[in-house]
Structures are given as structure tokens and as C-alpha cells.
């Protein structure tokens, strides 16, 4: 896979949907490409997060510590971006990511991503829009839940 195919993949990531092609190429270029074999950890819950992952191929299990031990709570697949919260605000990793089968991943380091945002404000705007939409959705969900609660 080359830069061009990575750009294709990035375009499918919702967070980057509105960003123009050259910026995506730059983002792809400054990211690191990594392969993970089945069972290898991308990151561990609780540790300091310094990069986000964009899954180009394969899928990963999202595991969380629970009182009953580690549990798979979700799966993330192609074109998903994971760990982006950690690079936007300094919080420890909220889950462990384990490769489920071979994976191709693009890693964006925190510093580079922030540099990119600084460099191109329109990218920040796009990121903000996406996050706001998410927030909006979460709020609606919450409201719906609350309404459901009171109805019940």
C-alpha cells in the first residue's frame, strides 16, 4: 500500500471527510505505517496516550478491565480511528487494543497531529465540526434515555 491508498483510506474516516486531498496526503506522509500480528497490543489501558490509530486493514478487539477481569467490549474495524481522544486531551488510554488477526495501521503522533491542526485551521474546524456532531448525538441519546427513564 502506498501513500495514495492511505489517502483513500483516510478519506473514509469520518473525522477527515471534509478535508482536502493535499492535507490528507500530508497527514498520511507524516504518519507511521505499522503492521501488527494477531494478538499484539496496539496500546494498553491506563498508559499515557501519545498517538492515534487509523485502521487501514484488519480489526482489533477493544478490551476493558472489569472486576471480573479483562473483557472485550467492542471491535473496531477498517477505517476506524481510535485513540484520538488521547491526542486531543491528556487522558490515559481508556481501553486496551489487541490485534485480531493481522492488521495494517496508520499511527499519527500527538505532536504531529497538533502541528497539523495549527498549520491548517480548516482542518481544526472540520475536526471541531465532527466532534460537535458527536456531542450533539450523545446529548440527543442522553435526552432520549432520560425521556425513556422518566416515561418508565
Amino acid at each position: 500500500m502506498t501513500l495514495e491508498t492511505e489517502v483513500e483510506a483516510l478519506r473514509r474516516v469520518p473525522l477527515f471527510r471534509g478535508i482536502d486531498e493535499t492535507k490528507l496526503r500530508l497527514l498520511a506522509f507524516i504518519s507511521q505505517r505499522a503492521r501488527y500480528a494477531d494478538g499484539e497490543h496496539l496500546c494498553n489501558q491506563g498508559e499515557e496516550g501519545d498517538c492515534a490509530f487509523i485502521i487501514l486493514d484488519g480489526e482489533a478487539d477493544v478490551r476493558v478491565h472489569t472486576p471480573e477481569g479483562e473483557k472485550v467490549v467492542a471491535k473496531v474495524g477498517q477505517y476506524a480511528i481510535v485513540g484520538e481522544i488521547a491526542i486531543l486531551c491528556d487522558v490515559p488510554r481508556t481501553a486496551t487494543l489487541v490485534a485480531n488477526g493481522d492488521m495494517e495501521v496508520l499511527t499519527v503522533s500527538k505532536d504531529d497531529f497538533l502541528n497539523l491542526l495549527k498549520e491548517f485551521p480548516e482542518v481544526s474546524l472540520e475536526v471541531m465540526r465532527t466532534l460537535a456532531q458527536r456531542l450533539e448525538k450523545t446529548t440527543q441519546d442522553l435526552a432520549a434515555m432520560k425521556a425513556g427513564d422518566s416515561a418508565a
Binding site: L3, T22, R25, L26, F29, D112, N115, E119, F120
Partner: peptide
């Protein structure tokens, strides 16, 4: 590619 990618990037960004 380098010229295309970096010509709009300011020198002090570190990229």
C-alpha cells in the same frame, strides 16, 4: 511530492 506537501507548511511548525 515534497514540494506539494510542504510548500504551504510554515518552517517553524516542525513538520
Amino acid at each position: 511530492t515534497m514540494v506539494e506537501l510542504f510548500s504551504n507548511v510554515s518552517g517553524d511548525s516542525g513538520l
